[in-house]
Amino acid sequence: MEDFLSYAFIQRAIVAGGIAGALCGLAGVFVVLLRISFVGVCVSHAALAGALVGVFLGFPPLPGAMAFSLASAAAISPLAGKGGISPDTATGVVFSVMLSISMLALGLLPGARSDGLGLIWGNIMTVTAPDILFLALVAILFTLFLVLLFKEIQAVLCDKESAAACGIAADAISQAALLFLGAVIACGMKAVGGLLIYSLIITPAAAAYQLTYRLKTMFILAALFGAASAWLGIWISWLLGWPSGAAIVLAATAILIPSILFSPKKTAHSSLFS
């Protein structure tokens, strides 16, 4: 273990993985409670598309990922509000466009495409200091959002319509949450990969959801599970030589399964129906 921790790239991976995992867990609470899991899928594919377009045009991938994921997060609800398209369909349309842009950019990339493929699979072992700085910045902003607006967030996550009806800016809160989701995905993509990042969003939050009836606890558990998944995944990846993104997501799933099996909520319901 000492050996494992002595490498600078492993140390960077642990810091970046911890922050990215915790951020994904926090963003996942919104996805789970607002029931927008398809929106999450869509935004993560948009980030992938943006990063690939960035690489194709010769930019670093992060700004492209950021621009695309934020734009798609911002576009979905207005698109769903107009023209009689259901929100689900609107998301599906944006998702397919993003996926095809990803494929197009990947197809047009010259040479071995290792940069492009790296974005799809991700590799937390190649994280740099600026990547960590950016993650830390998003983490600070997201934490401020959660702490300062917790009561509004609680009202919106409990019942959005009633929150709006008592004078809370419910739409602005859920839009802001979507934008943070976009930012988290863009900055976490390098660690987990564009295809798998969504799993790290939904899985720790789903596990936390099984275990508590308190929103604050759910946020804390989701962040811990996210960070723990990242650390466990990095360790497995180093030990067995597995791709890091896949190892992280499998670690997250390994946390989810006992959460479902031993969920106090499960017991409560079984007794209701037995």
Binding site: L33, K151, E152, Q154, A155, L157, C158, D159, S162, A163, C166, G167, I168, Y209, Q210, T212, Y213, R214, L215, T217, M218, K265, A268, H269
Partner: peptide, 19 residues
């Protein structure tokens, strides 16, 4: 049924807009 909020917390949210 699994919503992470208690009855009291939900009732309290009623005053959040005014607050």
């Amino acid at each position: 049924k699994r919503q992470p909020i208690t009855v009291f917390e939900s009732v309290l949210t009623g005053c959040f807009g005014k607050l």
